[in-house]
Simulated assay, not measured.
Amino acid sequence: MKIHAQALLFDNDGTLVSSLDSVHRCWTRWATEYGLTAEEFGRVELHGRPAVEIAADLLPADVVPEAVARIELLEVEDVPNGGVRLLPGTKDFLDALPADRWAVVTSATRRLAEARLDAVGILPKTLIAADDITRGKPDPEPYLLAAHRLGVDPAHCVVFEDAPAGLEAGRAAGMTTVALATTHQAHEVTADLVVKDLSALSVLVTDGGVEISVRD
């Protein structure tokens, strides 16, 4: 299978990097600080959602701004403690792309996203973070904004995601979707193409765009 595109849009956590251990450490501490029970905390989906939405699900509205600032600080401070690592295939895949053909689209705040990306040596020219949008995934706004910033028709973009909410956002934006089975089982995600991670793919840049193929 080959996919042709003009621009590639990547989720960060679970797609380019893994920060699951850090997320677990920091959010568990955060929940304890805010007096949440394990049952209350366990009902909320953390992965692929902006922190402000998670906090709003768990805490009174007047506490949310302070709570969001607190989890951002905890996660940023945890980055040097081995809080992030590259997933297989990420470096080779991104190194093959011109800087103006791809973007990172994350539910993390810009401060946290930049800390994690800098720690593993990823320097996107275009980064869409939680600070840039009014509605997070599964709303298509983040991916539509990325396409706009790159100057590419959404129909000519490919979204790379590991989370169902992100894949839903990509589909809603009218984009081709590629799911990476890094945080969910292959049968738990719906996409135009499902692979284990970026190491399963090869990329060829031509005058006409970008061609993505599944490795033999």
Rank of each mutant, 00 (worst) to 15 (best):
R29A: 06
G136K: 10
L123Y: 12
G89E: 06
L117T: 01
E211W: 04
I133F: 13
L36C: 09
R70E: 09
L9F: 03
H24F: 12
D197K: 10
R101L: 11
E77W: 08
T177R: 06
V205I: 01
P142N: 07
E33G: 03
D62K: 11
V152H: 05
A5Y: 08
S213P: 01
H187A: 12
D192I: 00
G83C: 12
L97A: 12
A163N: 04
L117V: 01
G174R: 08
V52R: 15
A179T: 06
S213N: 12
E66F: 03
I71A: 02
A56L: 02
A51M: 04
D92F: 00
K137A: 11
T177M: 08
G83D: 06
D13M: 10
L58Y: 10
E77N: 14
T106I: 11
A51S: 15
K137C: 09
I3H: 13
P138V: 00
R85W: 14
Q6N: 15
G82F: 13
T177W: 14
T28C: 03
A130Q: 10
A186C: 05
A69K: 15
D192T: 01
T37Q: 11
R149S: 05
T90K: 10
F160Y: 06
V159Q: 10
V76A: 12
A38W: 06
T176C: 14
V104H: 09
A130T: 07
R25A: 07
F160S: 03
G35I: 01
A119E: 07
V152Y: 11
R171A: 14
R101Y: 12
T15R: 01
V84D: 03
D131G: 07
A103H: 10
G83W: 01
V120M: 12
